[in-house]
Every structure is written in structure tokens, then in C-alpha cells.
Design a protein around this nucleic acid. Structure first.
Length: 787
DNA sequence: CGAAATGGCATTTTT
DNA sequence: TGCCATTTCG
């Protein structure tokens, strides 16, 4: 009797402790043991659930569901006091109810991106302090690298292996193709890489691929390339991104004792964004959790949008079959958007068949209707977006709550230009990443060769940058000797006198070798930043940059890399060259973008996943653009496009604008598209439509009178603006600008003109503003003043 | 060997 | 249309 009330009091106290969560979320938090699938709809507080679930495991263990513990009547009294808010003694609460609390280091929480991992780590530390820091929250790749650094020697690789990114892998496959005399026209390197990647995901060896190929010439060729590629990778002691995952799986499958070690270490596994996992990742997670079965995956099948890079939606759809006895918890309450936006999202996604049905709802307001603007062309579309943002800015004084999302990066151009014309500050996300810049990769490559002289791809990249009279033919010879005699390229250079084909290049090779030998020697004693300076200077790279266009910008990037080294030295427990290089190859700079200034955000729908904005414009909703025409002949691909639309819609908190254009210029060609089926899949009652294309048409045929009031207002604006623009360029003498000139912009402030590019009736200026960085601006439309 | 010119080609992106 | 990669020329 008293035990029954103890259990009830215990549950009530726990619910009180986690009272900021709703019922469903609490259920996910309290389900500690066994397989759990949390289907977390967009904006349903997914990360909060993960963090609180871990907090619950560490603090209370399985207290909520495990009734083995007994309590005295004073315990019950305490719990009642706690539940009713008369005490908040957490210490005592824990002592009274905890059942086998989990040790932080027994938890492995896996995410996809470093950004997500960092965020998780931060929130865990904020909530749990010291314990939070002891939880292994990392990405699939970094978790696997950590394991491989300890264990990979079992597979015959050195533990100080190098990691090749996609660019490096591409160079490697190209070099292999050249070696085997296979023309890149016959077989695209990209295609070969993608097939190798596919094979690795399925854990197929080159031999497996060869067997599968049968008499298919092309497939046999790919299998052969795969084999040589893998050999060269091993010789360079390098792993590509796929290797990191599948070699970990291979290790676990071949060496049960190693697997056992990690199984008993990671007794509780959590995986975020489970809908994005591929086959190897599934296998990894299955292996690790097979013993104890404590696996909790969180995801949303409706937001699976990465099939093209290997994500297998079947992993989440089939979770209950693969993990017997799995508990499924649906989080459908949304804390982000208005009900109308959610209705629109539900309405679109309901047209998909392969899904775990979910219906998002909110306790909040119904909100405004979804606004649909049907534009004449991409400029009209962009104009509408700019106008609407300007109106918003006049009312609220801020740009940053606005985001423009599109299907392809190519769409951003028209929008950018219009925003510039209207003096609206913006930031485009997803361009060239910092670590992908040539000058940064070059310096990193120097460091890679110093760290691992067998690193052929990086060696090839920089041995003649700056020019050292070591050209392609010489490099070919070095590669040949290096692979025949199993020597590193540096060793070949050292012994160049003994190789006849190199006899003409002895001076050049010797001096390059001495340079690297010096670097390698110094790398043993110098701290990283000094090594960096030595390499940048003595390699001649910095002075080489001086000779280049935009050399100062590139130098800045190199210095930025240097500051990354400094940061690394200050944060790493034990800074090493290898450690830094790993960070550089494995960690992106997604969280470097902490621009807090007030700008409109422009990005693809893919990159918007996980983000939210008050006002969202989804541009280019034409059949053929979004959904992409490439998805027309496959129902599966179309469903993925629809999920993408669902992601786009659910980014909006307050207002959702959908736009399409009846005529659109893309890739230099004008195409006519019908309205996206996704707009049609939203019930008409949720939409406020503004058919500007039709209005323009009827104006042309019937004159201004026929246009309704709403339309005419927009039209008047448009006409007025057109007049103004026409007037300004006709009347005002066209100012000409030249590089180096100082100018002032009424929004961006003062700056220096970097370049001038003539364009139809106008000029595109690239201006380095003192405060806001470099921008591209149309000379006639920007309100520029010469200084 | 290095600089200019041509031609092909172009969802989506993380590690 | 605009970028890049490779070719082609000096």
C-alpha cells in the first residue's frame, strides 16, 4: 500500500522536475532502457528532449519506470513536498528515488554535423556541469576517428592516418585514372567516386564489385579503379570520409573483442537526425547497441532530404522491425509556427505515401493566411520579395527575421541583385567554405606533407606551388618511383641522384627536399604557430600570394587559418600537428558564421533545415524548379522533393510567402513553368493569392481600369518605380567608377571600389566596405556618392 | 613551363 | 548566364 503511493509520489515528483516538457516529451525522457524511436516533428522541441533525456538518465537513472525501490512514509512526504513546490532539494530527490543512474561516460550521443554536436555539448554542460562534459557527444565521423586512432592498426593502417576530404579524393581518383590510362571523358571521375562511395556504404570490397560486375565492362573498370584507389590510399596512409565509417564497422565485425570493449563503454546510444543515416551508420549503431539494446534514435521521416548523399529513409521507417520491442513516441506539438502554417505543411506532406503519419499542431494562434505571389518572371518575383521586406522593415526596423529560401543556389542571383537595388542588406549562406579556399588548402597541404610525408595527394598539390621547376612530368616520375619502390615522394626526392629519369632536375629536387626536411625537423620542436609562420614564409608561399590577384585577401585567409591554429592551441588539451589537421579536415566552419548584424538570410532549403525565421519566402515554386524536373520520373524522388517543401514551409514562425514565376530565366535560358504542385497541394482556404502575372496580362489587354484595387496598388508601385529607374538612368549622367576609388553608400557606409564590371546599361561594382565587408552593387541603382 | 582561351556544363551538402 | 577545368598556344 505504502509502496504503491511511493511509486505514485515518485512519478509525480519526476513529472514536476520535468514539468517544462509536455506529456509526449516526458515519455521520451523517462524511457531509458531498450530501443526507442522518437518521431520528432518539425519544431517539436527535439533537442530539448535529447538533453533532458540524458539529464534524466544521469540524475535519476530508470527511476520512473523501475518500481523496485521502496520508500518510507517520510520519503513520500518529501516527494509530496517537492511536487507541491515546498522544497526543491534536488540532492535529496535524487537520493530518494534514483535507480541505477547512468555514468556520463557510458553515453554516446551521435549527431551529423559538428554544429549540432557542439550545441548538444553546450546544452548538456549548461544543464549538468561537469557530468555534461564527460558525455561523448560527437558526430559519426569524429566518434569513429577516435576509435580508429586507437584500433586501426588491426586493419594494417598506421594510427596517425590522414583524412582526405572530397577534393583530395577526387585528386586521388584522377591520378589513379591517369595511371591506368583511363580517359576522363570515357568515365567521369565524379561518377567513379560516387560508385566507390556507394560500394563502401554497402561494405563491398573491390573484389565484390568485380564479381557483381560480371561481363559489364564499365562496372569492371570501376571495380579495378576502386581497387587501385584503395591501394593508393593505404600507401598514403589516408582514409576518405566513407572509410572512416566503414573501417570502423569492419573493425567491429572482424574483431569481436574490440567491439565488446566499445559496447561495454557505450551502454546507452542516442542518434539524432536518424532519418539521415545511411547503411553503414545503421550497421555501426546496430553493432554497438546489439548487446544492451539501449538505443534511442530521434528523427523525422518527413524531413529526410539527403537521399542523394546516401541517407536511407528505410532506417527510420523500419526501426521497429530492426529493433524488436521498440517503443515509438510521436512528438506532434509544435512550438514554432502558426496553425495555418502547420496546416499548410500537413496538407502538403499528406500527399506522400511512404511515411509514419504525423500531424503537427500548436496551442498558439491560427495566424495569417499563406501568401502566394504569382510573378511574371524572376525579377518580378524578386521585386515582390524586396518590397515585402522593405514594408516589414518600415514597420519593425529589422531585416534579420526574414529569410528567402530556394531550391538551387543559381536562383539567388536575381534575388541578390534586387535586394542590392533596394538597399536591403543580406547574407548568402552556403557559398565557398573557408577551408575549401585554395590558399587555405595549400597551406594545410604543406602541413599535411610535413606530418605525413607519404601523403601523395597533398604533396602533388603543393610541391610546385609556388613554382619550383618541378612540373607535371617530373611529378609523374616521382609518383611512379614512389609506388614501385614503396618510398614516400620525399624519399624519392632525397635519393634523386640514383634515379636516371630525374637526373635533369637534381638541383630543384634537392632544394625542395631540403626545405621539407628542414620543416619536418622543426616540426618536432617548434610550437604550432611558429611552425606555421616558418612554413608560410620559407616555402615562399606568402610572397607568391603577393604576385596574385587579390593577394591581400588571400593572405588574410591564410592569417585566418593561423588564428584557427591559435584557437586550437588554446583549447586542445595537448595540441599536436596531427590533432590540428584532423580538426581542419573533419570540422567545418558552419559555426564560424556568427554574424549577428541585421541582414536578410538567403539560402537553399537544404541548408535551412533546423533553422527558423519569423517570415519565410519560398521562392521559385515552379514545377521543374521545385519540385526539380529531375524528380519527375521517380515517385521516390518526388516524395523527397515534397519532404523538402515540408521542411521549407515549417521554417516559418509567423508569415509564409510562396512565390512562383510564369516565366523564368535560368542558366541563360528562359523557360515557362506551371505553378508548383506543392502550392496546389495546400488547401485554397489557407491561401491568400496575388496573381500579379494575370494582373499584368489583363492590364495589357484591357487597360488600367480593369485591374482590381489590390493589384493596382502593386502595379502603381511597380510603374512608379520603373519610371523612377528609367528616369534616373536617362537623366542622370552615368557616373563611372574605377578601382581604388572611395565611395559612400547610404546603408553600407564608406568603402573602396575593388573592381568594375560592365553590364547591360550598368556596371557591377565590387566594393570593400569598411564596416560590412565586400559587396557587389549595381552602379546605377545603388545610391552611391563619390568621396 | 606558364598564361590565355575555349568549351562544356550546371540540384541539393556533410563529413 | 557564369564558372570551372582542360586545352592550346607561345
Amino acid at each position: 500500500m505504502s509502496n504503491l503511493s511511493f511509486n505514485e509520489a515518485k512519478k509525480a515528483a519526476l513529472k514536476k522536475y520535468f514539468s517544462r516538457m509536455n506529456e509526449r516529451q516526458q515519455e521520451a525522457v523517462f524511457t531509458v532502457n531498450g530501443p526507442v524511436l522518437v518521431l520528432a516533428g518539425a519544431g517539436s522541441g527535439k533537442t530539448t528532449v535529447i538533453v533532458n533525456r540524458i539529464a534524466n538518465m544521469i540524475t535519476f537513472g530508470n527511476a520512473y519506470n523501475d518500481d523496485s525501490r521502496e520508500g518510507s512514509s517520510s520519503d513520500i512526504a518529501f516527494l509530496t513536498d517537492y511536487t507541491e513546490g515546498r522544497t526543491d532539494d534536488l540532492e535529496q530527490l535524487r537520493d530518494t528515488i534514483a535507480v541505477q543512474p547512468v555514468k556520463p561516460w557510458n553515453i554516446l550521443a551521435i549527431t551529423f554535423t559538428n554544429k549540432a554536436a557542439n550545441e548538444l555539448r553546450e546544452r548538456l554542460t549548461a544543464m549538468l556541469g561537469e557530468d555534461g562534459m564527460n558525455i561523448n557527444a560527437s558526430t559519426f565521423h569524429s566518434a569513429c576517428v577516435r576509435i580508429l586512432r586507437r584500433e586501426i592498426e588491426a586493419l594494417g593502417y598506421g594510427s596517425d592516418f590522414t583524412i582526405y576530404d572530397s577534393d583530395d579524393s577526387q585528386r586521388m581518383i584522377k591520378s589513379v585514372m591517369a595511371e591506368l590510362d583511363i580517359s576522363e571523358k570515357q568515365l567521369a571521375p565524379r561518377a567513379v567516386l560516387s560508385e566507390i562511395s556507394f560500394a563502401k556504404d554497402k561494405m563491398l570490397t573491390p573484389d565484390d564489385l568485380k564479381t557483381d560486375a560480371g561481363q559489364d565492362y564499365r562496372k569492371k573498370l570501376v571495380a579495378r579503379l576502386y581497387g587501385v584507389y584503395q591501394e593508393r590510399m593505404k600507401a598514403a596512409n589516408a582514409l576518405d570520409f566513407d572509410d572512416i565509417l566503414c573501417m570502423t564497422v569492419e573493425l567491429f565485425e572482424k574483431f569481436p573483442d574490440i567491439l565488446e570493449k566499445y559496447r561495454s563503454r557505450y551502454k546507452y546510444i542516442m542518434v539524432d537526425e536518424y532519418q539521415d543515416t545511411n547503411h553503414v551508420q545503421f550497421r555501426l549503431v546496430s553493432l554497438l547497441s546489439a548487446g544492451h539494446g539501449n538505443i534511442c534514435v530521434v528523427g523525422d521521416d518527413d524531413q529526410s532530404i539527403y537521399k542523394f548523399r546516401g541517407a536511407n529513409i528505410e532506417n527510420i521507417l523500419g526501426f521497429e522491425d530492426q529493433f524488436a520491442g521498440a517503443k515509438v513516441i510521436r512528438l506532434e506539438q509544435n512550438y514554432r509556427s502558426t496553425q495555418t502554417i502547420l496546416d499548410a505543411a500537413n496538407s502538403v506532406i499528406s500527399h506522400n505515401s511512404g511515411r509514419k503519419a504525423k500531424t503537427l499542431w500548436t496551442a498558439g494562434e491560427p495566424g495569417d493566411k499563406v501568401y502566394w505571389y504569382k510573378a511574371v518572371d524572376q525579377d518580378d518575383e524578386a521585386q515582390f520579395i524586396a518590397d515585402t521586406i522593405n514594408t516589414y522593415y518600415k514597420e519593425h526596423g529589422r531585416y534579420s527575421p526574414n529569410a528567402v529560401l530556394y531550391r538551387m543556389n543559381a536562383q539567388s542571383n536575381a534575388i541578390e541583385r534586387m535586394l542590392v537595388r533596394n538597399g536591403i542588406p543580406y547574407k548568402v549562406y552556403g557559398g565557398m567554405r573557408f577551408l575549401d579556399r585554395a590558399e587555405v588548402k595549400d597551406i594545410v597541404s604543406y602541413l599535411c606533407v610535413i606530418y605525413n610525408p607519404s601523403d601523395m595527394v597533398r604533396f602533388e598539390r603543393i610541391i610546385n606551388v609556388p613554382k619550383r621547376s618541378i612540373g607535371d612530368s617530373t611529378i609523374e616520375v616521382i609518383k611512379q618511383i614512389s609506388s614501385d619502390l614503396k618510398l614516400s615522394p620525399l624519399e624519392v626526392m632525397r635519393d634523386c641522384e640514383s634515379f636516371a629519369p630525374l637526373s635533369k632536375k637534381i638541383t630543384a629536387l634537392r632544394s625542395a627536399y631540403n626545405m621539407f626536411a628542414h620543416f619536418i625537423e622543426k616540426s618536432m620542436e617548434l610550437p604550432l604557430d611558429e611552425l606555421f609562420d616558418l612554413v608560410a614564409e620559407k616555402s615562399g608561399y606568402l610572397s607568391y600570394l603577393d604576385t596574385l590577384d587579390k593577394g591581400d585577401v588571400k593572405k588574410e585567409n591564410v592569417m585566418e587559418l593561423r588564428s584557427m591554429i591559435m584557437t586550437y592551441m588554446n583549447t586542445a588539451e595537448e595540441p599536436t600537428l596531427g590533432g590540428f589537421l584532423e580538426e581542419v579536415t573533419l570540422y567545418t566552419d558552419a559555426d564560424r558564421d556568427v554574424s549577428t548584424d541585421d541582414r536578410v538570410t538567403l539560402m537553399t532549403v537544404h541548408s535551412a533545415k533546423g533553422l527558423e525565421f519569423d517570415n519565410v519566402f519560398v521562392a521559385g515554386l515552379d514545377d521543374g524548379i521545385f519540385p526539380s524536373s529531375r524528380s519527375f520520373d521517380s515517385e521516390d524522388d518526388m516524395e523527397e522533393e515534397r519532404r523538402l517543401a515540408y521542411v521549407a514551409i515549417t521554417r516559418a514562425k509567423k508569415k509564409l510567402y510562396l512565390t512562383n514565376a510564369s516565366q523564368r530565366m535560368i542558366f541563360g535560358q528562359t523557360q515557362r513553368n506551371v505553378t508548383s504542385r506543392f502550392i496546389k497541394e495546400i488547401g485554397r482556404e489557407m491561401i491568400e493569392k496575388n496573381d500579379h502575372a494575370a494582373a499584368m496580362k489583363s492590364r495589357m489587354s484591357e487597360g488600367d481600369n480593369a485591374v482590381t484595387a489590390v493589384h493596382s496598388a502593386t502595379l502603381q508601385q511597380q510603374l512608379a518605380r520603373n519610371k523612377m529607374l528609367a528616369g534616373s538612368s536617362a537623366v542622370k549622367e552615368k557616373a563611372t567608377y574605377s578601382a581604388g576609388e572611395r565611395v559612400a553608400h547610404n546603408i553600407f557606409g564608406e568603402g573602396t571600389v575593388l573592381s568594375v564590371k560592365a553590364m547591360a546599361n550598368d556596371a557591377m561594382l565590387e566594393i570593400a566596405f569598411d564596416k560590412v565587408g565586400t559587396k557587389k552593387i549595381m552602379a546605377n541603382f545603388a545610391k552611391l556618392k563619390k568621396l
